[in-house]
Amino acid sequence: MKKVIVNILFAVICLIAFVVSVIVGYIMSAQYLTNRRYKYLNVNFTQDVGTVIKDLTYGEKPLNNYDLYLPADKDRENYSLIFFVHGGGFTGGDKSLIEAKKHGEYLASKGYVFASVNYTYATTENGVTINDMYEELITAANVIEKKCAELGYNLNEMAATGGSAGGCLAMLVGVKAPERLPVPIKLVFEETGPASFEPDLWGCETDEARVAFVNVLTGKKFIASDVGSEDYQEAIDEISVATMINENTVPILLAYGPNDKIVSAEAKYPLLNALKENNVEHKYIEFPNSGHGLLGDPDKTKEYYRTMDEYLEKYLSN
């Protein structure tokens, strides 16, 4: 009898050990993939290289804040700003996520001023829309320019970047109304940002689904019979960067994974077509084995960051 109890206990211990081991293995793989994803951005970010000033504010709302990564060299006449917008599905995320930190340290080490910016994201209660986020980011860019001047970093040009929802917002910042930015924008580079919110590209098959999708993103109150109306289309176009491309659009570097289950893989095509039609300088890097995190193609990761360096060198003067 005692032997049976001991064996049962041992079996339970083995089962628990197995479950814990699977979780440990899963965490190890996530750690490995993240390190591999950002290894090209690794720098030893000491005070000789640069500094970070955290939690500066640009407005009164709780998420109107940003982190500044500043190069140690303060002697130059002008600096270029890299304006980073975090992802999080328009409903979450933070300026301190690992991608922000890695990009910030790397780009500050290259002599750029890097700002990682928070914005008020949408919750079920606050009714915040993509346009509201865009407006906050425009305010942020203008406040950051003034703050940098105070700190002795005179900005004379900028680039916008981000991933996922941040990629979408970075493109809007760079393309929608560049005259509202404090300094000329010269470049956008982004990963997996939704470029079109045309509901059919997102799997909406009925008019009810289409208006529900558009209403969530725009805060409008369309009903099914509005589908196809001028106002309805205008609301979609207002947040779809693909419809804003013209011959004056700045160069754009883009990266997408065809296995993306979060952002519609179809939504990039209107943007790619518009860039081609308007002869806008751009480069699209496809990560063939990746989804939304672009984690499955280390060779493409290398290509993306090399191209980012080339674009920064080519289009920014500082």
Binding site: F10, I13, C14, A17, F18, V19, V20, S21, V22, I23, V24, G25, Y26, I27, M28, S29, A30, Y32, L33, N259, K261, N289, S290, G291, H292, G293, L295, G296
Partner: peptide
């Protein structure tokens, strides 16, 4: 006792390997 220890270690190794493979496939393809 020694036999049980070997079984437990084997279970842990298989568990970690399973987690790694599952993670690399699922997260890697995300």
């Amino acid at each position: 006792m020694k036999k049980k220890l070997i079984i437990l270690i084997t279970v842990i190794v298989i568990g970690i390997a399973t987690g790694l493979v599952f993670g690399l496939n699922s997260i890697g393809g995300l």
